[in-house]
Simulated assay, not measured.
Amino acid sequence: MTDSGLDKEEFDEELDVNGNMSFLEHLEEFRWTLARSVGAFLLGAILVACFLGQVSDFLQYPLRVAYGSAEVAEQQLVTRNPMGVFSVFIQIVFLGGFTLSLPFMLYFLGRFIAPGLNEREKRILIPSCFAAFVLFIAGVAFSFFAVLPLTLSFCVRLNNYFHFTLWWTATDYFSMVVWFSIALGGFFQFPLITVILVVIGVVTVEQLKRFRRFVAVAIMVFAALLTPGGDPISLSIMSVPMYLLYELAILIGARFERAKRDKELAETDDL
Rank of each mutant, 00 (worst) to 15 (best):
R255K: 13
L225W: 15
T33E: 01
N160Y: 04
T33S: 10
D269R: 14
A259L: 00
G97L: 07
V48M: 10
F214V: 06
D270A: 12
A254L: 00
I200C: 09
R258W: 02
H26Q: 01
T171R: 14
L197G: 02
E71Q: 11
I233M: 11
L208I: 02
N20G: 07
N20T: 10
F222L: 01
D172W: 09
P62G: 11
V215A: 06
F142M: 12
T268P: 00
D12R: 08
H26P: 01
T169P: 00
E206I: 07
V17A: 13
F86H: 10
F130H: 12
G96Y: 06
F108H: 11
N18R: 15
Y243H: 11
F145G: 12
V17Q: 09
A141V: 11
A216F: 14
F145K: 13
S239K: 09
L125V: 05
S143I: 00
A70T: 13
F154L: 02
T194N: 02
M105V: 09
N81A: 15
C155S: 15
A131V: 08
D231H: 03
G201N: 06
D57K: 15
L208P: 02
R255W: 02
R258A: 15
V65G: 03
Q91A: 05
D231E: 08
D16C: 06
V93G: 03
T99W: 05
L109I: 09
V199E: 14
M21V: 05
T204R: 12
V93N: 07
V72T: 15
F112Y: 15
A70W: 05
T165M: 10
S56M: 14
F23I: 09
E10V: 01
V221T: 07
V203C: 08
L95S: 00
F164S: 09
F211I: 04
D3R: 03
